[in-house]
Design a protein around this nucleic acid. Structure first.
Lengths: 224, 224
DNA sequence: ACAATGCTTCGGCTACCATCGAAGCATGAA
DNA sequence: TTCATGCTTCGATGGTAGCCGAAGCATTGT
């Protein structure tokens, strides 16, 4: 079972250390988890067998990274649940400020800006949210078409909802997932408002200057 | 740590059994997990402390359900990761269809039709429901008198409430109990709309053809 | 009143697994 | 070659947590 792998504190520390997308050596991960290299080695082979991490040999070193964004997304979800009950880990959310501000969760925007965007959509009645269920309003559809050239038919998918609330790892509040969340993120890319950090494996999303400005126009709340 | 909770096989089986959104009793969950009730009790209190499940007391029983969609979402994500490595888990669900459709719960109607009836009463504002507390509205009283010849004074009882939400065994949603629930079931009998199955010990309720039709007129939702 | 059912608490047992020391392979540098 | 570094495997140990039997509450039914 995958959850058992994440359940162990030492392994959880390792995975948390990998959440920024960078690859770390076995020794570094051992130090992060506060265990000896031989114990870490055992843990890492289990994580690898479970498909959570992938190794990359390089000289005498062995670099480990999270397998893909799906893994990172599930880990975020778990951290989100843990945060709600106050039973969270010592380390809450990512240390890296860039990662806290904007990052990829599966295929949609997460972090401070992701939460801010959902807040803005809600307060302006572009969506209606009841708990985890979110639906687009008529005004919301018009807004998307006008400002982001996103039409409703682009969003229909047989098995995936258009809107979905996704618990944010660092902010501990919801951000927008679903086909709409993915489409908006894609549009930000196409408009050159934002792009994933070129560093291999990084989940950071960098906003351009104009992108930041335009984003603030559409979803700003005067915080900046 | 939340992941550790899901990591244990017994608890994972319980959570998987709850993934359909319905509530199960502690004993049923114990059987699902293949463990004794006392072990299950320990697991369930841990899951509750971790915010993954929520209990609802109902008589001698204690029904547990997943806290909300966030929990279900994370569990789905974990299942998705597990599926990739080839470790799938399959759970069976439903049983006797006649019993699921309509049966006696104490002295009132339960099963699909019972749940459907309460749904209909609620959406038509004939009752007002807050959690487990239900009260009859003025329109509701008129409706009962007109269509079922049930008057309020028939329903008063020193120790039993008129309306009460009762968690449905097969549907795992509420149906109507209390003196009103009993009176309505009795009326269905008298009107020859429905009758308990003659098989000794059976709790199945068989609706007649006309009974089914009349029931649909009063409480139908266009599902059939 | 009494019994039956459902669930919880308590105590002890057991099995699992994380942990580390020591030794064994690699790779790279001298 | 020889040595050092990085990581893995082996073996033994210990702590933790799952597990069940027995007993204790709580609710319901007779």
């Amino acid at each position: 079972m995958v959850a058992a792998l994440v359940g162990d504190p030492a392994r959880a520390n390792m995975l948390t250390a990998l959440m920024n997308g960078r690859a770390l050596t076995a020794s570094e991960l051992a130090q992060e988890a506060g265990i000896t290299p031989q114990t870490a080695s055992s843990h890492l082979s289990k994580l690898e067998a479970g498909g959570l991490v992938e190794p990359e040999k390089q000289g005498r070193h062995r670099y480990y990274r999270l397998t893909d964004d799906d893994v990172a997304g599930v880990l975020e979800g778990l951290a989100g649940l843990a945060a709600r009950t106050g039973h969270m880990r010592v380390r809450t959310g990512p240390k890296d400020p860039a990662l806290r501000r904007a990052r990829i969760c599966y295929d949609h925007l997460a972090g401070d800006l992701g939460v801010q965007m959902l807040d803005s959509l809600r307060t302006r009645n572009l969506i209606r949210q009841k708990k985890q269920d979110i639906e687009l309003t008529a005004e919301g559809a018009r807004f998307l078409a006008k400002h982001l050239q996103i039409s409703l038919e682009m969003l229909t998918h047989p098995r995936r909802p258009v809107c979905k609330a996704c618990l944010d790892w660092s902010e501990r509040r919801h951000h927008l997932a679903g086909t709409l969340g993915a489409a908006m993120m894609q549009r930000f890319n196409e408009l050159k408002w934002a792009a994933r950090d070129p560093t291999p494996g990084s989940r950071v999303v960098n906003f351009t200057r104009t992108g930041e400005k335009q984003f603030a126009v559409l979803f700003g709340d005067g915080r900046d």
